[in-house]
Design a protein around this nucleic acid. Structure first.
Lengths: 197, 197
DNA sequence: CGTTAAAACTAACATCTGTTAGGCATATTT
DNA sequence: AAATATGCCTAACAGATGTTAGTTTTAACG
């Protein structure tokens, strides 16, 4: 009973840290703040984690792995580009919805990682983005998407829309995450305007 | 020679602060960092500004005023909803492009404002967002936009796309800000997909 | 040249920062 | 019952933080 229970309390710490980092930002969150949220002293945290930054690393890289896994699955499907894009968007949103707090930290606080972790993280992210970009380019090549669109602009717009979601999405609200994914992909693929019949 | 030259040096400080806040985030930026960037001692900063937070307030509320002014002008036009939306988007992007650094701070660091400034800021922002929402709702009412879209989702997606721009847009690149505004509004209104002829 | 105002300086403050060392209590395992 | 491991404690560190008070340098104007 070493690794197992260790994880339990450790993950409790990391979870509360995620909440704190989301609310106040990583740099503005002190270890004493975190300790207080858990009802213990700051020094006691170090029985569970090696450093403040280790917590951030855990949050960021765990999320990155989830996103990657989701896209792996989508890419293996044999469907049209717009369908693939839609599935990618829905997958991304589902991953975020599973842990909105960690997602917000992943998005907003990763820059506080020190080297070489920051470099690694950014490489993972650019790789992920490029895989989406490839889907869009495929769609253009096959005549599904307009040929005059700027793919960089498109993919950055896509990611902006996706990544901002944790900031406004209310999981208790009437609209669920799958629905959001569907509407969002429809919006990006088909636009707001009514199609001419 | 009091107000005029005072502003000059003061604004120089605020500008450099904006750069710093953008790079490292407000909380992770120290007054000693800022002083170093200006080649002076930390204490000397206080000849020009009252506090660290005053700098942030200046940046956030000045940008807010610019956004507001831009939308005022658009709303006064007598055009269709999709045209109004397009003009609103282009205006927003032009304001951002005029000062990408301040825009990034405006977007990412406003949460470090203390009360009551934070409250005021958020009220300004929600007001601005609601004015865009009203344009979309008008478009739906007049049959220009699909009637089954979720306006909250739409407007948040719009803002996500807009606000993330300072993070990836390269002003030296081949695509200028007006062009971005046009493509972005086309993308959101008409979508990526080729229209059926 | 002397005056005045702006902008910088040095020195110091109280507080907060992440983190370490070493010890004590509780609960689980042997 | 003894041994072990887990979780927390207190005390303390070295350094960073925003900001102040008071002083000196720099530059412009009469």
């Amino acid at each position: 009973m070493e690794a197992v229970m260790n994880l339990s309390r450790r993950e409790q710490v990391i979870r509360k840290a995620a909440e704190l980092f989301r609310e106040k930002g990583y740099a503005a969150s002190s270890m004493r703040d975190l300790a207080q949220k858990l009802g213990i002293e700051a020094a006691s945290l170090y029985s569970h984690i090696k450093s403040k930054e280790e917590i951030l690393r855990n949050l960021c890289f765990d999320m990155a792995a989830e996103f990657r896994k989701s896209l792996d699955e989508v890419e293996s499907r044999n469907v049209s580009a717009s369908e693939k894009l839609k599935l990618g968007i829905i997958g991304h949103i589902q991953v975020m919805a599973k842990d909105l707090t960690a997602s917000a930290v992943f998005m907003n606080e990763h820059r506080h990682l020190s080297q070489p972790y920051l470099r690694d993280f950014l490489l993972l992210r650019i790789n992920y983005i490029n895989r989406f970009k490839a889907i869009i380019e495929e769609g253009i090549r096959l005549g599904e998407f307009k040929e005059n669109i700027d793919t960089k602009l498109s993919v950055m717009t896509l990611f902006s829309s996706l990544n901002w979601m944790p900031q406004w999405y209310d999981p208790e609200g009437k609209i669920d995450s799958l629905n959001i994914g569907q509407q969002l992909s429809d919006m990006l693929v088909n636009g707001l305007k009514k199609q001419k019949p």
